[in-house]
């Protein structure tokens, strides 16, 4: 049978920064073809296609909570594979090699992590589960 794609709406303008990405305007409806764990989603809109940051998209038919994991306040130990400096107030800056706790894994590629008393969003692609090889 036909493949039914999920339709999402862009919540803000996104200007693409590489050839495999697709730019969107706020309010655009796009079909999501593939959701990468990285938080980049492969989308199509008419004859255009490319990767769009998931954080710029919201489901057209209400929140898509079924796919979203619950927070785990106990935390899951991860090691920072690559450092990142917070660019927004709710993000956290970490250095390579630090061990932190992941308390909420979100589909948009930004996880809530805890380090000592601080919590904030961090790019999931820069984290690795503690005790696992890359």
């Amino acid at each position: 049978g036909p493949i039914i794609l999920q339709t999402y709406r862009a919540i803000a303008d996104y200007e693409k920064s590489s050839s495999t990405e697709m730019g969107v305007k706020a309010g655009d409806a796009v079909d999501v073809v593939e959701k990468s764990e990285s938080g980049w989603w492969f989308c199509q809109q008419k004859n255009r296609r490319g990767w769009v940051p998931a954080a710029y998209l919201e489901p057209m038919d209400g929140p898509d909570e079924s796919e979203e994991q619950e927070p785990n306040y106990a935390g899951e130990l991860h090691v920072v594979r690559k450092g990142y400096t917070a660019a927004q107030e709710d993000e956290i800056s970490l250095k390579e090699g630090e061990t932190i706790e992941v308390i909420h894994k979100l589909l948009d590629g930004w996880w809530v992590v805890r380090k000592d008393e601080a919590t904030g969003y961090y790019p999931s692609m820069y984290l690795q589960k503690a005790g696992e090889e890359k």
């Binding site: 919540i11 803000a12 996104y14 590489s18 495999t20 990405e21 706020a26 073809v33 593939e34 990468s36 990285s38 938080g39 980049w40 492969f42 990767w51 940051p53 998931a54 954080a55 710029y56 919201e58 990142y84 927004q88 107030e89 709710d90 948009d108 590629g109 930004w110 969003y121 790019p123 999931s124 692609m125 820069y126």
Partner: peptide
């Protein structure tokens, strides 16, 4: 064919456009 996703973290929209408050 779908190429691999970009290797940089996906950017986040500005706070005032965010769908869920932190």
């Amino acid at each position: 064919t779908i190429k691999h996703p970009p290797t940089n973290p996906p950017p986040r929209p500005p706070p005032d456009a965010r769908k869920k408050p932190p």
